[in-house]
Design a protein around this nucleic acid. Sequence first.
DNA 1: AGGCATGTTGACTTTAGGCTAAATTACCTG
DNA 2: CAGGTAATTTAGCCTAAAGTCAACATGCCT
Lengths: 210, 210
Amino acid sequence: MAQGGAQIATTTSPFKRDALRMRKVDYIRQVASDLFNRKGFDATSLDEVAEIIGISKPSIYYYYKNKSELLLDCYTRTLDICESLIEEAEAKGGTSLDKLCYFTRELIYLNCAHGSIAIVSELNSVPDASIEGLRKRNTALTENLLSLTKNGVADGSMRSDIGKPTIYFIMGGVNWIPRWHREDGTMSAEDIANSYTEFLLRGVAAPDGN
Amino acid sequence: MAQGGAQIATTTSPFKRDALRMRKVDYIRQVASDLFNRKGFDATSLDEVAEIIGISKPSIYYYYKNKSELLLDCYTRTLDICESLIEEAEAKGGTSLDKLCYFTRELIYLNCAHGSIAIVSELNSVPDASIEGLRKRNTALTENLLSLTKNGVADGSMRSDIGKPTIYFIMGGVNWIPRWHREDGTMSAEDIANSYTEFLLRGVAAPDGN
DNA sequence: AGGCATGTTGACTTTAGGCTAAATTACCTG
DNA sequence: CAGGTAATTTAGCCTAAAGTCAACATGCCT
């Protein structure tokens, strides 16, 4: 991110238009997500977003009705990704513990690659009409993780005392990453993911396990 | 908190002035901390703070030079408390693991009692002159926790592979609490503290234990 | 070339909210 | 009760940033 406007080419060959448009929207969302994560929605101005991208503020309004819709798009994408991560985890099979670890690890990688997803933490700033829907998806996600732990007890991979607070703890640790992580090479995503996953594992894995 | 302005009595007997003033400042800081935690510094207006307290915005300016100074005061208090928590933990003795658990548990209680402390997460919004100082104190705190784990290896209470990422993970989980926790009785501070502490314990305690 | 789509922008309006000045009230003390 | 200080407020200034608009590009398509 933040490598100027060169990203957005102006050449539009007939059938590449849509693809180009999509890439532009992607880029806006990426820069916005990064800033929203680091400074918060209200502290981020669209002028700033535009400047980093190398376009003018009205251009953003060409792609987004208003600032809240941009936030909505960021959050929607995050939820899309999280939901597909869950599906992937399920598809890969293995124990419930494996699935939880997979999900967490992937999420950590995403949070370390700034802008790739926005942490869903300011639902109230999203357009009124969409708040409830997003909240439901978000809750459903937590429920999914929670039911994963239920299954983990059944398949013997996880402890039986993992409840909502523990899930919140884990998500908190993961969601906090963009607040302190800088892509300056001092701490690689792998390091973080490994440390987190090991810690997580010891916390939730069934005792004794081989 | 948030029970209107009744909190601030107007009766001032001669020598109680200072104490009263202090209580008022405390109350402002408390309400502000709560809002800063939940909505962020920029998303919180002083009008809002004033309204919850039941005073007018300029009254806040009687006690604080500006919004940034209010944030600075919130953060300073947080750091004061955290530092004394570390001291308390040291004073109580026990293993390094005990100390880490004590510190974490107390911090969780504070984070569950909304407004009692502000999460130090928007250092850039503090008055320029104070940023560096606060950052140092904050870093020192992390270093303290980190050195606690070093000692924990020595005294045999903790695993040897606990590094910075793990400390960040833990702090993230704790710092995230105000984002989701509501004082509606559905989840008590005890429940949270217990779950967190057990999870933490399994993650950092030396294997085999007593 | 002219026309239409798609983008892009500088310049503008508007508003929320930080901050201030000056007037007003409450309260203590002699 | 008078004078002084502390505390609070009313009214309003001022700036940053959201949002709008009309004019200007760009490039394909006939």
